[in-house]
Amino acid sequence: MDLRIFTEPQQGATYDDLLAVAKATEDLGFDAFFRSDHYLTMGGDGLPGPTDAWTTLAGLARETSRIRLGTLVSSATFRHPGILAIQVAQVDQMSGGRVELGLGTGWFAQEHAAYGIPFPEKRFGILEEQLAVVTGLWGTPVGETFSHEGAHYTLTDSPALPKPVQQSPLDPSRAGVPVIVGGSGPRRTPALAARYAAEFNLAFPAFDEIADKLANVDRALTEAGRAPESLVRSAALVLCAGADEAQVARRAAAIGREVDELREHGVAGTVDEVVDRLAWLREQGLSRVYLQVLDVHDLDHLDLVAREVVPRLG
């Protein structure tokens, strides 16, 4: 089971706060540091204000050496796909080939209004076209050009540069970074993942729905003629672990949540409970979990999981 640390900086975090979490992530042996891509808090004052996801990851690319880095997820409404392809390829170069791109439709209308970003009612077609453009730009051989004419974007004779350091997991003969696609829809999103993604992610799923949602992905892979083992299946879930009940309660209070609710919806409880939950998620077919860390100043939380949970997962 791969465990990745996942942060929500729009809730209130400086770059230095995120750097501390990323360095702890690396030092403690976790697989990756990921962050959300949002520009507005979802509760509280959000001070000191948002940080841009790809600016943050560029900095972390130079200040870490092992962990993978990425977004869960960037909104297709935030950046033109041509610009996004350049940004991600550059950060991949800066990191020595450790970047992954999570990309989704976007959902938070208020942050778009707050910063003057258009928020069309229908966005799935935008996401689909962005995936085609971004992967197309990366995968175009050096010396050739890329053109695209679609409903939302037109690119003409692009040199399709720069290239990522990595090769596409779907076609190792071409450049590309692992793409993460997620969503709850039964057909369209799984089909999109089967076409473009190295990983399919469930964001905060109800536990009793995981098996059905993964079955939808399996069906889409079969329809696309793609091997089931070629797609990583993951979930993002809130983390609230403690050495004892008192510590669990303190950590729940620090993020404004109830312990019982966290146990019902997240990776929460004592060490034994957290180990059991992660083992159960693995039995459901997940091979990766993004542990959502909401208190970025509680680095002891990460240390507890690294010392007491990870060794018991095998």
Score class of each variant (00 low, 15 high):
Ala241Lys: 02
Val181Ser: 03
Phe30Arg: 01
Ile83Tyr: 07
Arg250Gln: 15
Leu278Asn: 09
Leu69Pro: 10
Leu313Ala: 11
Gly29Arg: 09
Gly97Thr: 09
Ser168Trp: 00
Arg123Ala: 08
Gly82Val: 10
Arg277Gly: 08
Ala252Thr: 13
Asp298Cys: 11
Ser75Gln: 07
Arg68Ile: 11
Thr154Arg: 15
Ala254Ile: 12
Val177Met: 01
Ile67Thr: 04
Asp295Ala: 11
Glu283Ala: 15
Arg62Met: 13
Ala113Gln: 15
Ile210Ser: 08
Ala61Cys: 12
Gln167Lys: 07
Arg188Glu: 13
Thr71Pro: 01
Arg233Trp: 06
Tyr115Met: 05
Ala109Cys: 00
Pro118Asn: 02
Thr77Arg: 02
Thr145Arg: 14
Ala235Cys: 12
Ser36Ala: 10
Asp295His: 02
Ala224Glu: 10
Glu121Thr: 14
Gln247Glu: 15
Glu100Arg: 07
Thr140Met: 12
Pro81Ala: 11
Arg62Tyr: 07
Gly183Pro: 11
Glu264Gly: 13
Phe33His: 10
Ala194Gln: 06
Asp303Gln: 15
Glu209Ser: 15
Leu60Met: 12
Arg251Thr: 11
Ala151Gly: 01
Gly143Val: 13
Ala198Tyr: 01
Asp2Ile: 03
Asp171Asn: 14
Glu111Ala: 06
Thr56Asn: 04
Glu121Val: 10
Val134Met: 01
Thr77Glu: 00
Ala197Ile: 04
